[in-house]
Design a protein around this nucleic acid. Sequence first.
DNA 1: ACGCTGAGTAGGAACTTCCAACTCAGTGGT
DNA 2: ACCACTGAGTTGGAAGTTCCTACTCAGCGT
Lengths: 156, 156
Amino acid sequence: MPQITDATTERCSIARSLEVLGHKWSLLIVREATLRGRSRFADFRAALGIAPDVLTDRLTRLVDAGILDRRPYREAGERERVEYVLTEAGRALLPVLGAISAWGDVHRPSGFGPAALYTDRRTGEPVRLAFVDADGRELPADEVEVVAGPGFLSGD
Amino acid sequence: MPQITDATTERCSIARSLEVLGHKWSLLIVREATLRGRSRFADFRAALGIAPDVLTDRLTRLVDAGILDRRPYREAGERERVEYVLTEAGRALLPVLGAISAWGDVHRPSGFGPAALYTDRRTGEPVRLAFVDADGRELPADEVEVVAGPGFLSGD
DNA sequence: ACGCTGAGTAGGAACTTCCAACTCAGTGGT
DNA sequence: ACCACTGAGTTGGAAGTTCCTACTCAGCGT
């Protein structure tokens, strides 16, 4: 998204996030890294069927945005190559993937069941995304109100 | 995103969701509708600075996807016009906006503070998105494990 | 009849994406 | 030393999108 952020929207964290995440393929690359643990150029290419020049561009942007870390690796008897692993910021996108995936499961069902299952690492019990109050108590979504914060500024 | 869903990805609800949400401007339109209550062509146009032909296309897709409802309205002494209001599925995108916005506030700070504030409609207390278990108890994000579900199928 | 307003269409330039073929560097085999 | 192989890209041109500006079109009020 070339200049999605202009004077009126640059303060909005949604717009700024979409600047990097909103490009075609970006979130799918993050999905592959998160759900499948992929990290290599050829793996992303094969899994997504993305054109190599576009993949180069997306990986570069994700690295620049601090979502992926470009790091060298060496497989036994191979020369050094590079791979792209999720940073802390990249792993922090899990709720974004979770929210999109939960919405899609309900509102654009595939008939094959959910795409991703979120579970408690220790108990194996399913978990889901929800709004909680300061004490960590769940709140029904329709009791949540959104108001524009100081960072939101769009002509009006 | 023309054919982001091919044989290997069509079962994935993330890919299917991005087919409609991943287009440039789509989520920003939803943001305007959700946070600012906008519903009219000219309002979206002015707020986002989007080209009218692209806006027409996005609104049409959002309507087709069941996120917006195209409905006639009539202002006093004006002729009938159309507006686009969020459907139930559209309002259900709140967690998606919340997740993106929370990520952006932390990982792409603007220096102006958060873009959106989520509060309990009744108490006015701030709320946030979190993973919860079946009983609605919060779970730290790093204790959540994601595994591909039946709907996830991508070459591997 | 005339101008105003909101919701769009039209035309062409600029930019992105797609596709297929090609490069480039090190490694292992001979 | 030479050759084939492999992963990570580049390159060039066609196809598809987005941008920008100007224009249309329908009904209302005057």
